[in-house]
Design a protein around this nucleic acid. Structure first.
Lengths: 221, 221
DNA sequence: GTCTATAGATGGATAGAC
DNA sequence: GTCTATCCATCTATAGAC
């Protein structure tokens, strides 16, 4: 025991460095994948950005694809949990039968609030959106789980609009999801150019209200 | 002249084979890129599918990226032309001031009709959608031109809803574009699973009307 | 214009020393 | 667990024969 007071035990130190390395890799990978695209980022890019060793990706995650999938799994689980929580709360507020507006709020608010300039999950939303089109076979497979999480939203919407054919409700849900999936940085930038700077995505709550207004009108049509 | 009646002149034959090879490459590349993603398709995959020589991509197009860009350029130009034509016709029908519904029809109809099961451009729509998220730097640059083609649609919508702040109109146009961009094969399949088979994208005209209904309601809200 | 062979570069994965 | 060196597969692009 050479430094009993200034240093942790060797085992603890190893565990700490281990966890730190893993977290550094996860953060760097998520960021690079979200910004550059999955196929445009190499393991070398990730480890260089994270300032860790090249071999650490394979050591901690097994492979590049496994790392990608781990990020995907964590973020979609977190997002789905938050959406389900908001839907549950909306149901509680409305005696188990939430309004179309409340359901759409639960669907839109989590990914939109994550997109706020100072939010810790800002980059995660971009990652998730990208995963929908560029994801690996394993990720596309896992998106079936996503369907089961959408089940509750579809059922709630059908209950909220009992006179509408279910098929119609599914299509409108599809349209609403399209509105969300279009919120990539590049699309915001293009819109900013088109509008001559009039659109600012900085006011997330205002954007959320705009989106809910638009989709709600579509559902009540 | 060995076969003057059964064969074209050698020069014509060469030109014909040339044009045929180029067309075969273009078709195979568009298809593979649309289905598998840009980075997941190699020049070898393309030339194998087109049953032409490996070197022909570089001979006819210069590089893999140039081939990709050529497909992108052709298809977006064709799509924008058709949208502009429909918008122009709608303006003519309404004394130069088309309704929100007619404008949305001109925006949605071309890519949706191309998506019909038996349409020659069915795969092109998938290619274009993919280009928006996976495109190269050159393609993203070219999407600025896309902005200028959207100008007319934005202006027409602003004129059709003069009491609405322009910023609001831009956001609603953004939402409407999101509805279109979400029409990837994978998303249709997922919706099909979620709805238990109730949604069939085979009836394109019905889907077009659903989309216009939804977006029009959002614009009139 | 077509085709084969290959140069030249990149990237995922791993062995083995520490 | 970390790190270097390296293997091996894959890919784009091109030279050069036909």
């Amino acid at each position: 025991m050479t430094h009993p007071l200034t240093m942790p035990a060797p085992e603890a130190e190893v565990v700490q460095r281990d966890a730190a390395t893993k977290a550094l890799v996860l953060a760097a990978a998520e960021r690079l994948f979200a910004l550059e695209g999955f196929q445009n980022v190499s393991v070398r890019d990730i480890t260089a950005a994270a300032k860790v060793n090249l071999a650490s990706v394979n050591y901690h995650f097994g492979s590049k694809d496994a790392l990608l999938f781990e990020i995907f799994r964590r973020r979609t689980a977190e997002l789905n949990r938050e959406r389900a929580r908001m839907l549950h709360e909306a149901a509680n507020r409305h005696d188990g039968k939430p309004t179309v507006r409340a359901i759409l709020g639960a669907l839109f608010a989590p990914p939109l609030r994550w997109s706020a300039k100072d939010h810790a999950r800002r980059i995660s939303v971009q990652f998730i959106i990208r995963a929908r089109s560029e994801g690996t076979a394993a990720m596309r497979e896992a998106l079936s789980t996503d369907v089961s999480h959408l089940r509750r939203f579809a059922d709630a919407l059908i209950a909220a609009r009992p006179n509408l054919p279910a098929e119609e409700v599914y299509w409108r849900l599809h349209f609403s999801l399209g509105m969300i999936h279009n919120n990539r940085f590049a699309e915001f930038d293009r819109l900013h150019v088109l509008s001559g700077g009039a659109t600012r995505e900085s006011d997330i709550e205002a954007l959320l209200e705009r989106m809910v207004d638009f989709a709600e009108a579509g559902f009540l049509a």
